[in-house]
Design a protein around this nucleic acid. Sequence first.
RNA 1: GCCGGGAUGGCGGAAUUGGCAGACGCGCUGGACUUAGGAUCCAGUGCCGAAAGGCGUGCAGGUUCAAGUCCUGUUCCCGGCACCA
Length: 849
Amino acid sequence: MAQKEDITTSRALDQRDDRYDAQRIESKWTERWQQDESLYAADADSTKPKYYALEMLPYPSGVLHMGHVRNYSIGDALARFMWMSGYNVLHPMGWDSFGLPAENAAISANVPPREWTLRNIGNMKAQMKRLGFAYDWSREVTTCLPEYYRWNQWFFLKLYEKGLAYRKKSKVNWCPKCATVLANEQVVNGCCWRHEDTLVEQRELEQWFLRITNYAEELLTGIEKLEGWPEKVRTMQRNWIGRSDGTLVDFKVDSPSGETVSVFTTRVDTIYGATAVQLAPEHPLVSSFAKHNDLLRADVERLIAEQRRAKEIGEIGTIVKHGVRTGHYAINPFNGERLPIWIANYILMDYGTGAIMSVPAHDERDFEFAKKYGIEIRLVIVPSPDDPEETVAEPALPFTTMHGTLVNSGPFSGLLCEDAIEKMSAYAEEHGFGKATVTYRLKDWGISRQRYWGTPIPMIYCEKDGIVPVPEKDLPVILPEKVAITLSGGSPLSKVPEFVNVMCPKCGGAARRETDTMDTFVDSSWYFYRYTDPRNDHAPFDSNAANYWFPIDQYIGGVEHAILHLIYSRFWTKFMRDMGMIKNDEPAERLFTQGMIIKGGAKMSKSLGNVVSPDEMVARYGADATRLYTLFATSPDRELDWQDEGVAGIQRFLGKLYRVVTDGTELVVRAPEPHGEGERAASARALQRKLHQTIKRVSLDFQGRWHFNTSIAALMELNNVLSGMGPEISSGNVPRQDVATTKKTIVLLLAPFAPFLARELWETLGEKGSLLKAPWPKYDAELAKEDEIQIPVQVNGKLRAVVTVPSGSTEDAIRDVALADEKIRSSIAGKNILKQIIVPGKLINLVVR
RNA sequence: GCCGGGAUGGCGGAAUUGGCAGACGCGCUGGACUUAGGAUCCAGUGCCGAAAGGCGUGCAGGUUCAAGUCCUGUUCCCGGCACCA
């Protein structure tokens, strides 16, 4: 009988000609939505609570890739959910549109960077609209336009005023064949990316720096408050800032010139064990030692070259330690000992002071070095004498514990390490040869780029007045358009006389403009504030607007920005706060980093040929199916292994859902008699229960872990239940009203994930207006409850039977049912029940023997 | 070396608190309807076994009535940092 029903249904379905047609539905709604730009507009003045949902803005490289689609599908689902939950949502999008690829395109395709960039933006914006992302395009921000980058310049002037922007000589990557500066990303294995046989050199150039290290401590301690950020990102930032507590100690060089060498150590307690001082090859003292010593100079040059090379190819950590004696000595200020000064290839100039005291007995690296060159190894720490268990006669060297006691350390012998560090630092400070110090790995942010496609740095160099900032009223300094872009001969802007030659704002005399542009990370450091007031032409943004929307409630993007972008923008926020522009200390309350997309075990890349194009997926399966798949394949935080068949499966689900919602209406022509609550048919109750369980699951996933894969699975289950009820519905066992409610609710639950189909079905069901204004369905916990529950019955922890009891049954009732079960009786026959564990609503376990 | 994450069927993955391991989807097998099926529908699908039953969440132990989940040890994979003094 049932079989016959199914056949009839399937035949009927086959003859329908209005199957789910994603392309038709999606182009219909894309067009309609295009006509109403205000649909997704945030309200500047609303009584609703605000919600700022933000995805990281893309670089307009040409086309969207799947990683973008995944990122935006997550953010769009969230934004739509928040809209439906009654929030005033800000969900904007923009373009991080300065950068090198535009210049490369200009060289290879002979297209001006601006034209290339704006064209890409047009393409990608169209793709986003085709994918149905609900952005407030009236707030679109494009960083390469003067209306935006003038504020980069304005901020730069403010930073300069506050002493947070300064100029100093610094090393840059230089390719001798190209005769130009290279970005770090263009250095491949220590060589130029276009001349693979040419070693990149380091050149000293005057560069602009931002004093981010002024905020090092706050950037570090602030991490503790970022509880809505992934632990991974917080750890990466902590490591990047790299705070290290130690002591600076000045060693006098034993020579008539009276120089001193300052060393940084975290273990000043071991200083009586120091048997050498070691300098980085690039330490300033080294060049003075080498000045009149040709042999030493040659050695030093070799060490420098070797160290640079190791750094460039990323093998500085595994370099074989070696060094040379300088023939000079330094005096240990604690005990007056003369220590030989060495130059060693593993000492880094850019950490600490570039000089260390070498304590071979208590540092692994010093130990290795001392062994090689026969430097004395002197034990000054022993395991705690208070704890005989730990005390050994001859500790294996190097012995590096912090929980030891000092020996052979003059007046400090007998102290515990931690106490000794404190006392000895204080002692050094008292006697004027040192002090407790904190150092950071974080360096000031060099923002000068010898490139064309970026924000011009608003500075002028005058023979007479020196460095003169461009007056605020003269902003923006416009990036000239007709510029010959080459990768040789330094900054392209330096070859544009009408740009370079300028009148000094102070003396009116002839002067030159700065021809470097800013690092593009400047653009992205504050762009999200601009969204709150995007057309402001007298300030970067209005404080009231920013204070209304900030902090960002949820920021979503790739983990590749965990350090640079997310540190720079935190720094910028703190700087703007200190200027009184905003009130928040941190830009984003919560951060979510989505996983990468891979295919066939590898990251998608052109060279591997495993790139999946969003356009192709949309053409084949539709935007809804493509988006839904990126959410369904796995939870958003994990790596996603792309499988085209999976998208096909999603398309089938959408097709089935479409049929169930549209087609079932005809099955229910006969309105059944209304049932009373008490006598509601079992199948009607089952549907109702499933419905409320589904609302609950989907709602909780949004509030909690964002496991949209399980939300979508729940929707599939509900859809399966509803579609399986065709006969029940025809026979009137399920009230028509219930079916209508279920359909409407499925559509609402689907809306954040598959907006096109949801909107189409919303219309089919006779509903009007945007789904964003429809309230998110609420679940009734009572209705979601099971009437009867299946209780697994274990004997000695092994599953032996499953019994059905009414929900809310007492322990006794459950036990009686379990003991009455045939299988249970046979498996406990002839045995004693030693213990009964009954977890109401969960399970029963009988321990027998 | 340090830090963070992971390992569950043929595959992607479920399993907020320790309580029926494998939801949902893919794939596969059989069937229905078909001129046709890469459409749709129905049934099955962790492994071994004819069945009863046994075995199963990287590996080895432990705690517990009960462990994917907790503890100890260990292997492998992914990501980040790294002679950081």
